[in-house]
Amino acid sequence: MSAPDDERRVEPFDDDLEILPDITGDERGTGWGESAFDSDDTARLLEERPPHWG
């Protein structure tokens, strides 16, 4: 027979264990196909500027 939950011993929980990450891979630039070494996006943004921006 099992003991009631009030009498059951529970071991301390390890709070340092990361179950789910704070930021997932698809929230980072590399998840969208960007290079990990691209720190300055100015040239890319100017190249991909829509035609109606002149």
Rank of each mutant, 00 (worst) to 15 (best):
P21A: 00
A3Q: 05
A36C: 01
F37H: 09
G25E: 13
D6N: 13
E47Q: 13
P12C: 00
D15Y: 08
P21W: 00
D16P: 01
D14R: 11
E48Q: 10
I19W: 02
R8E: 06
E11P: 08
P4G: 14
G54W: 07
S39R: 11
G54A: 15
R8P: 00
P4I: 10
T42G: 03
V10N: 02
V10H: 05
E11V: 13
W32Y: 04
D14A: 02
R49I: 14
D22R: 08
E18A: 10
P51E: 08
R49C: 09
W53A: 14
D5T: 12
G29H: 02
A43S: 08
P21R: 14
V10L: 08
T24P: 01
G29P: 04
T30G: 01
S39D: 08
A43V: 14
S2C: 08
R9L: 11
V10C: 06
H52A: 13
G54V: 15
T30M: 07
D26N: 08
I23A: 04
P12E: 03
D26M: 06
D15Q: 09
A3I: 15
G33W: 02
D40W: 00
I19H: 00
E34S: 03
F37D: 14
G25K: 07
W32H: 02
E34L: 15
R8D: 03
F13P: 04
G29M: 05
I23V: 15
L17W: 01
D41T: 10
D22Q: 04
I23M: 01
L17A: 11
D14Y: 00
R9G: 02
D41P: 05
D26I: 14
E47V: 12
A43L: 12
P12W: 03
A3N: 06
G25L: 11
